[in-house]
Design a protein around this nucleic acid. Sequence first.
DNA 1: ATTGACAGACTGTAGGACAATCTGCTTGAT
DNA 2: ATCAAGCAGATTGTCCTACAGTCTGTCAAT
Lengths: 223, 223
Amino acid sequence: MISKYALDRDDVTLSGRLVRSMRDAILAGDLKGGARLSEREMTEMFGVSRGLVREAVQTLAAEGLITVVPHKGPTVTLLDRHAAANLYRVRGALEGLACAEFATRASDAQREELFAIFKRLESMLGKEDPNALVEAKNDFYRCLLSGADNEVLELMFTQLNNRIVQLRRLTLSASGRFSVTLQEIGAIIDAIRNRDAPLARELAEAHVAAAAAVVQRRFDNSD
Amino acid sequence: MISKYALDRDDVTLSGRLVRSMRDAILAGDLKGGARLSEREMTEMFGVSRGLVREAVQTLAAEGLITVVPHKGPTVTLLDRHAAANLYRVRGALEGLACAEFATRASDAQREELFAIFKRLESMLGKEDPNALVEAKNDFYRCLLSGADNEVLELMFTQLNNRIVQLRRLTLSASGRFSVTLQEIGAIIDAIRNRDAPLARELAEAHVAAAAAVVQRRFDNSD
DNA sequence: ATTGACAGACTGTAGGACAATCTGCTTGAT
DNA sequence: ATCAAGCAGATTGTCCTACAGTCTGTCAAT
């Protein structure tokens, strides 16, 4: 058992914080898809040595967030329509699993928390607050994954989600979609409440497929 | 379209080869679970500078193959019973997706190749050649993933599989299991032949669950 | 207009230096 | 004898410098 008061060892090293900062910069859109990340620029931008930058790049490359071409330097991985479709297919499988596992294994407290977060989401209908919405969605997934009690799934889902974040901007801005989203999630919540894992899984997969369809349509429009 | 004659740029850098070497060393079991990987030892073992070792460690850590504890150094990630169960759950979801996608989207040539590899597997029943068996299984999955035509899935499945390799030794050595395995895979093959994606998926998930059960039983015995 | 050579910029790799931290052992007090 | 404090050695964390290898754009020559 790890002490409740143990320091957060994930944060003590500069490397760790650098990886987070770079990841956040990409997820926040400050470093856009396709942007070149020369070592020199990065050392200036984050105020650390070249060695640390190179280590961080390796980490993010392994996560798929960055693409490294030898002797040309890393770039922020660009998502085309095909890659987007593939990401969503895998995400459907993982999110389905997460919902099924949650329905089967989550504790009562975790269930209540999930329901509460959903209520918070519902209360946002009509209001226009993208930041709060994104945060609530993040809470939702965090709770879902924690209840699924599977660190492997958590890791892979998080990695996948990080890559999808760039695309989520597209789905969120699709007006009128939010109420549909709420209905879909509501159905999943009901299935979880009834501990119906297969149904929860099926609904979750359908939900992701619907989101994927929206993204694909966006690609059509911008081509 | 990338030229057929383009050099393999994945291998030109020492870093790239080092990552491969270290990964292979872990997968081959030369670096066992829990083994400590001090930077000094690694520089001597692979004959490269400390910087390269650190970069490679970052990459493999992001893949989950090694665990880094600040100021104590990296170790080969150790799999306990809980982690093993979690790995197999996720693997079930991904392998199910891969089979379904293959059934739906693979070309005729890819189908034929998969069937041929399966025949090769069948011919191994009775003979005792673990190496050839592992290689044939690898070919099987390579073909499966290539037919699923989803690089994201391919990446995640490969990462997952790398972590499971340590455990696969346990399932393979389970005598009498191989003929059952063949039957299970044979059923999947039939479903793929009939282009029945949902069935292929279901069977694949059941197949993984069976393998997971074997592993769990092994954990019981060795405790 | 195409080719070829050159220069500048950037990455790839090595190795050293010092600070921060951990671990185990010794020492000292109770 | 036991336990706490503290010291020493080893290891990692971080930065810096240096040089070789590779890419890209430019400019002259054909």
